[in-house]
Amino acid sequence: MINYGLKILLLGLLLGAAVPASAGGSLLPVIPEAQARVSETQGCVEPVDDMRKNHMEYILHQRDKTVHEGIRTQQHSLVECINCHVSDAPDAPRVSSEEHFCNSCHTYAAVKVDCFQCHADRPVSTAQKLSQPGGGESLLLSADRQPVSVTGDQAQ
């Protein structure tokens, strides 16, 4: 009896595991196409295999160079990654979505990306099109903001 139940359970598990595979879906991430290739022979700014493994090293290195020394080469710049790997269509996926280039793989690898807490997750051209970047209400009206009336420096 117990044996019989176990067999059914096992069978169920096997079937369950087989379903996604047989439905044609793979567990591998669906990585969106980039906008361009660096050259006919090379896809990304470094060989793709290398980029898959070491992109974070390149970006990290570039990050310090850019912030502290003002070195703004494009090859390892995060902004350029996004410009090329994320579409500038208005409905382009955000990093919160698995369809976003970075997140497609990061979800698969279960590695959290922090970059986009500060960095734009969509290309420069998208930012230029958006009227209200930043997520808050536009400060366009700041000219009309009333100056805080002052009790003076009431101290004197």
């Binding site: 903001r145 009333q146 100056p147 805080v148 002052v150 009790t151 003076g152 420096d153 009431q154």
Partner: peptide
């Protein structure tokens, strides 16, 4: 809380709470 004295002898106003406690 006390505003910093940047312009001695002047009263200061701004949208950024200058001169305000």
């Amino acid at each position: 809380a006390y505003p910093m004295e940047m312009f001695p002898g002047k009263e200061v106003t701004s949208t950024f709470f200058d001169g305000v406690v």
